[in-house]
Design a protein around this nucleic acid. Sequence first.
DNA 1: GTGCAAGTTGAAGTCAGGTTGAGGTCAAGG
DNA 2: CCTTGACCTCAACCTGACTTCAACTTGCAC
Lengths: 156, 156
Amino acid sequence: MDAKDLLTIGEVAHRSGFPPSSLRYYEREGLLRTARTSGGQRRYERSVLRRLAFIRAARTIGVGLDEVREGLDQLPDGRTPTRADWTRLSRSWRGRLDEQIEALVALRDGLDSCIGCGCLSLQRCRLYNPGDRAAEGGTGAQLLPKLLRRTPAQGM
Amino acid sequence: MDAKDLLTIGEVAHRSGFPPSSLRYYEREGLLRTARTSGGQRRYERSVLRRLAFIRAARTIGVGLDEVREGLDQLPDGRTPTRADWTRLSRSWRGRLDEQIEALVALRDGLDSCIGCGCLSLQRCRLYNPGDRAAEGGTGAQLLPKLLRRTPAQGM
DNA sequence: GTGCAAGTTGAAGTCAGGTTGAGGTCAAGG
DNA sequence: CCTTGACCTCAACCTGACTTCAACTTGCAC
């Protein structure tokens, strides 16, 4: 924890797999805090790697940065987060993952029956017309949570 | 199939659940073709509803518009698509869905073990460090296919 | 004390998948 | 014929998560 343990942005980038631009971006967005040298360069504590690991996992399962920030904000500010702290955070995603899986399985099964029947009917097909809403409702119900839609993710 | 069977954009919007703006957008993007009245207004064949149902299902499972277009392009141009045509298209998504589910399940199981061990370690944790690449590789392997990342999707 | 890789900033650009708005036109009922 | 709601186009804007750029500064090795 001496000053000499601090990492440069390049080192953090290398060890975390996030490019420096993302690290700066996360800082701007309030997900990370950094110390600075007298000259203004960022110096990261080792613990940032854990935070970044958390962020990566969150992003991977589709948690948006806002929510990630909320999660991270719940970590104790002074002391080093304990195992229990991280566990609590992770557990909520377990539920999210379960939901996502459930939604996908339902969709797959719906697709199966569609293939079976060959219908693809607006009127009858479960997959294409989730809420049995045929030619009625306005906005069109979404079967899957928005989370599950894909993202560009052209970088990395 | 008389001229009188044609639908206005408003009717299609209502029946399909897509807002008119999306219908116009899909047309610009080459996913839909429309007839026009002498005055330039769109008139849709009834079959567009089926196409739109397909598009909705595709989008729901995270297929991008490019790929949807490719799929639709494989439909016979002259004749009405048969059951077999739609089935062939749908079947390829079945594979995609299976992949997505598999990836999520793997992720969930990884998360389970993380919660179990409370580690969340960059060095050891499967979830946070998928490729066992700890502090080595440059870009950082992605556990999930890009498809699975979420998208803003603020509209609808 | 100098060279230069690595760091800094703010502004702007990118991507998909649309939406919104202004300003104008169409079509159908009365 | 006239009104009115539905429709038209084109351009600009939106979100989220970043990346890229230009112009400049730091910090460390030699």
